[in-house]
Simulated assay, not measured.
Amino acid sequence: MGDAEAGPVDDGRDRDTEGRARNARPRDGLGRPLPYGANGVERQPEGIVRSPAETVAEAQALLDAGKPFHAHEVFEDAWKSGPESERELWRGLAQVAVGLTHAARGNVKGGARLLRRGAGAVREWGVESGEPRPYGIDLAGVGAWARELAGRVEKDGDVIDAGAEAPRLGD
């Protein structure tokens, strides 16, 4: 039996039984890692399959609470578990949420870039699909909000309040 078959090495790092890294460190509301033992914000469970309506409602609640990193994880679940035809929609919304996360963390360049990338993705998906308001999501409004915020954070360079800046996804 060769070393490749011996299984994961116990190197003291937080790994699952397959040897993949786990993200067990506590996190703050913007997803930044905190020291082990610190009181963090409860993590979003990963790999949850939700209906589109549940996805939008949960993501909006997290955005409103100033937790865009967590909203990004909800959109990421939809992107990974939803139909192939909707993956770009959910991925674009995840990019918008993580762009807001970076802008709130003070990463002006990365935040603006992701906000614009997400805005372009949701606009393009809406045009290609012919659905400007899938599941009640105002794609044009979300895109305009993201582009405006990207320009503002680049111009001002200020750290923003994620909850105060949260977009309205739709209805």
Rank of each mutant, 00 (worst) to 15 (best):
D77Q: 09
V153D: 07
E86F: 05
A71L: 04
G2N: 13
G12P: 04
G118I: 03
E76T: 13
A119E: 10
A104R: 04
T17L: 15
G31F: 11
A121R: 11
G120C: 03
E88L: 08
G40F: 08
Q95Y: 09
A164P: 01
G47W: 13
P35R: 14
A164H: 01
T17R: 15
I160P: 00
L89I: 13
D77Y: 07
R117K: 14
A140W: 07
R13L: 12
P35C: 04
V49S: 07
G82E: 09
R113V: 13
A104L: 03
A150H: 10
G170P: 00
D10Y: 01
A144C: 07
Y135F: 14
A144H: 13
V56A: 02
D16T: 02
V74T: 13
A112K: 13
R123Q: 08
K155A: 10
G2Q: 05
A65H: 05
T55N: 05
E42L: 11
P26M: 11
M1Y: 05
G151T: 07
P35V: 10
G82F: 07
A97S: 13
W90D: 06
R133Q: 13
V96H: 06
R15M: 06
G126P: 03
A162S: 08
G40P: 08
R25W: 12
G136S: 13
D10C: 03
G136N: 11
D171V: 00
A146D: 03
R50F: 04
E148Y: 10
A57S: 14
P35H: 08
R25F: 10
E76V: 14
G141Q: 09
V49R: 05
Y135A: 09
A162P: 11
V96M: 06
A61Y: 01
P45L: 04
G99E: 12
Q95G: 03
R32M: 08
S129W: 05
L115D: 06
L100R: 06
N107L: 05
A57Q: 12
K109F: 02
